[in-house]
């Protein structure tokens, strides 16, 4: 009997894990629909669902024209983009915390966000300084990848990339790029300064379907790749020497995870600006709920991150016209994080 019970435990855990993922997916859909109902014009959830389902072929519900236009042009782009960005940041944050075995790690730890910031602020403040006349999104994305890759090169010696070196190189590069951004801001005129500040705080206003169609495929592919490596990431948590002895090609896995996380973060930051705390707080909270196994934690975190950012952005646009979502995530996320720190097991991580 005892053996049966012992065998049942992992099985029960698997079922629970599946339940979490399904539940969080449903929550994400519900949050998206719920968020789309909120705004200056209140739209019934049924109408929102009907308009959304009409996007599918062979489905044709009757919907009011006004509601359809508001949803398609204004609310859906913003809500869906929030979901995509939240998924990306929370997914990348989970991987970074695992890879660095450090609860303070977040998606921007290898300088990706700072690189994106420099690219974006460069386009806003001094377009002539940005090569090839790149657009803001492209410049931000290019800056993100360049910074991440630069940090990786700095920290790599003889094909080995110690995470401690990576962490320090990341902090140093972030500081340097931050200084460059500050320099650009000091030289900026009032209008550019305002625009750049919004971008730096993370803002989803003015989201377009174009941004979604660029970011969504990249984010989905990246998250799937990360889930593919979830078990290797689990083993990596035992330390690199142990992981190597247990059959994980350590350097290669690290390289893949870093590159994919950088693309993920870069894509999110390029379309939404620097939205903080999602990638730090959501993985923490989910780890407490579903445990450390990345096969569950990673999808759970990503889905929860999507819901979180949709909710935060809805709160932002409800509270005040033009309130950047980054401010809300910080106001909601930081007290929650501190609560975890004081009351829960975060300290023992």
């Amino acid at each position: 009997m005892a053996t049966d019970e012992a065998r049942a435990t992992p099985r029960a855990r698997r079922l629970r894990a599946r339940a979490w993922c399904v539940g969080l997916f449903v929550l994400l859909l519900a949050t998206v629909v719920g968020a789309a109902t909120v705004g200056p014009v209140r739209i019934e959830p049924a109408t929102v669902a009907a308009v959304a389902l009409n996007a599918l072929p062979w489905v044709d519900f009757q919907t009011p024209d006004v509601a359809r236009t508001i949803l398609r042009v204004v609310r859906f782009p913003r809500v869906v983009l929030a979901a995509v960005v939240g998924v990306a940041l929370a997914g990348a944050g989970t991987v970074m915390q695992g890879l660095f075995r450090n609860p303070m790690a977040d998606p921007s730890i290898i300088g990706v966000s700072s690189g994106a910031a420099l690219g974006a602020v460069g386009v806003i403040v001094a377009p002539f300084a940005v090569p090839f006349g790149m657009g803001l999104h492209l410049a931000a994305f290019a800056g993100a990848l360049a910074a991440g890759f630069g940090v990786y090169l700095i920290a790599t010696e003889n094909g080995h990339t110690p995470v401690a070196t990576l962490l320090l190189a990341g902090v140093a590069v972030q500081t340097l790029l931050g200084a460059a951004v500050s320099f650009l801001l000091v030289r900026a005129d009032d209008h550019s300064l305002r625009e750049a500040t919004y971008w730096l705080m993370g803002d989803l206003a003015g989201a377009t379907w174009g941004e979604i169609s660029a970011a969504l495929p990249a984010v989905v592919v990246c998250v799937l790749v990360l889930v593919y490596f979830a078990r290797d990431l689990n083993v990596l948590l035992l330390g690199e020497a142990d992981a190597g002895a247990l059959g994980v090609p350590v350097e290669r896995t690290k390289r893949v995870l870093l590159a994919v996380s950088a693309v993920l973060t870069g894509a999110a930051v390029a379309v939404a600006g620097v939205v903080g705390f999602v990638g730090l707080v959501v993985p923490h909270a989910m780890r407490l709920l579903v445990g450390p196994d990345h096969r569950v934690l990673l999808p759970a975190s990503a889905l929860a991150g999507g819901s979180f950012l949709v909710a935060a952005d809805t709160l932002a646009r409800t509270l005040a016209e033009g309130l950047p979502v980054g401010i809300v995530t910080a106001f909601v996320g930081v007290p929650f994080f501190l609560y975890l720190l004081v009351n829960r097991e975060v300290r023992s991580l």
Binding site: L238, G239, D242, A245, R287
Partner: peptide, 14 residues
């Protein structure tokens, strides 16, 4: 080759 290391970095609560 299986290895029993001296210590292991057990981060997070597996």
């Amino acid at each position: 080759v299986a290895t029993v290391p001296q210590e292991t970095a057990l981060s997070f609560d597996f």
